[in-house]
Design a protein around this nucleic acid. Sequence first.
DNA 1: CTAGTCGCTTGCAATTAGCAAGTGAGACGA
DNA 2: TCGTCTCACTTGCTAATTGCAAGCGACTAG
Lengths: 141, 141
Amino acid sequence: MKLPPHGSFRSLCPLAASLDLLGDRWSLLIVRDLMARKTRYKDFQGSPERIPTNILAQRLKLLEENGLIARRPYQQRPLRYEYFLTAKGADLLPVLQQLALWGQKYVPDSWTPPAWFATATAADLLARDAATPPTGEPGDE
Amino acid sequence: MKLPPHGSFRSLCPLAASLDLLGDRWSLLIVRDLMARKTRYKDFQGSPERIPTNILAQRLKLLEENGLIARRPYQQRPLRYEYFLTAKGADLLPVLQQLALWGQKYVPDSWTPPAWFATATAADLLARDAATPPTGEPGDE
DNA sequence: CTAGTCGCTTGCAATTAGCAAGTGAGACGA
DNA sequence: TCGTCTCACTTGCTAATTGCAAGCGACTAG
């Protein structure tokens, strides 16, 4: 179902095209986790929705191919990557904020997201990540 | 994959729960069409994304079961229904607006939605539908 | 009586999802 | 040095979902 980076969209309606990239049950949850400062494979697996591991690996690859996320090594040997949002991915924040508001309004007993989620901007997310070195940066540890 | 009206959600995160209802490639496009004043089966089929007829029928049923849309007959013999958004469905407007903005920003060559779409509110959509009789209303037959 | 439309169903093949188990590279402890 | 463990994935396989195509019932028009 997932399309390659420049796979053909069903239409050039911006909604339809966005759904070609994000219209499944998992992709936006990974984006949510990244916004909540989760960065590693295990972190995503720890989320309460219990994403299957093969789907997680596939979605991370797809999100990266589509430029929504990027990764960088947090250690050599064994080579391991941490994931973070690009500007393109961070710009989904308003979408997730609105979708969460809708869920809060219509899904009984749903949780209230943390305050930072409701008030943050996409720029905040990026600044935050930039401030977090790839595992020690200026002074290092 | 689709859940019954009160099917169990993967989690009570408002985002995850919303995606349990709407996280597929077609549901939100039907909502989009309803916002664009499409009301009948054939109208939905006419959209450029070419939704398969069996999927359309199934999604309409699901959206209705979940209270996002409702239907009323627009003719007897043969009995035929037109569909419209409930308040719950119309409240997805901000979500679609944000998603469309994202698509416009990141999907090359994507269309610019009509002006009404960018400026409307959920209340506008409902008022508009209320003003459109079920096929003749005040004087009626 | 014939053909056509509309709104669906149904059958079926192909794709996708998801569960479970496995794998490789190294860390850690005895 | 061996055995055990973790992390980040793969791989295999089955079940569920998707989507194409055809069919169907109730009409309407000619």
